[in-house]
């Protein structure tokens, strides 16, 4: 939801802290769950991730989550799905060129990043999306890769 998404960016510092606190717990849990159940619970886990991140960030489940590097503003909500934005078309009031009723996702991203401890990460280049990952869970991917850092 747009309003929640804006709240998350506005409180990017808090969301970063929450993420750093909750994420290891989620990954530990999922590691245990996937060991016991294999792939049997993938569907509900994907649904849970989509539901939670959808509510907070309007997550599009690209499977290449970059929220911690984009000021908690999901780049897949950019109509051009830029992973290294913004484009040059941003309106003078900071709104999107394509959707004038929406704040530019990347104006929000740079703003969100400015409040985050690890906000400098937005300055590093993000690779193009692997479209095969669409609809898959970043949590499960990380749990299975046994990595805790995004």
């Amino acid at each position: 939801m747009y309003r929640f998404r804006q709240w998350s960016v506005k409180h990017s510092r808090f969301m970063e802290g929450l993420y750093n606190f909750v994420n290891p717990a989620i990954l530990v849990t999922l590691r245990g769950v996937t060991k016991v159940f294999g792939k049997k619970l993938d569907k509900p886990i994907i649904a849970a991730e989509a539901g939670l991140k959808g509510l907070l960030f309007d997550c599009q489940m690209c499977g290449n989550c970059a929220l911690s590097k984009t000021g908690m503003s999901c780049p897949m909500n950019c109509p051009k799905t830029l992973r290294n934005g913004p484009c040059g078309g941003v309106r003078a009031n900071g709104m999107c060129e394509v959707k004038p009723e929406m704040q530019c996702v990347w104006v929000a991203a740079w703003d969100g990043a400015s409040r985050m401890k690890g906000g400098e990460a937005i300055k590093s280049i993000e690779h193009a999306v692997d479209h095969r990952d669409k609809g898959t869970s970043t949590w499960l991917k990380l749990a299975r890769e046994e990595k805790t850092d995004v």
Binding site: G89, D111, I122
Partner: peptide, 17 residues
């Protein structure tokens, strides 16, 4: 590069990228 539209302060960071 477009230095003339928001986020004006970060446009130089975008240039660096």
């Amino acid at each position: 590069i477009n230095p003339f539209v928001p986020p004006i302060h970060n446009r130089v960071d975008q240039l660096a990228k």
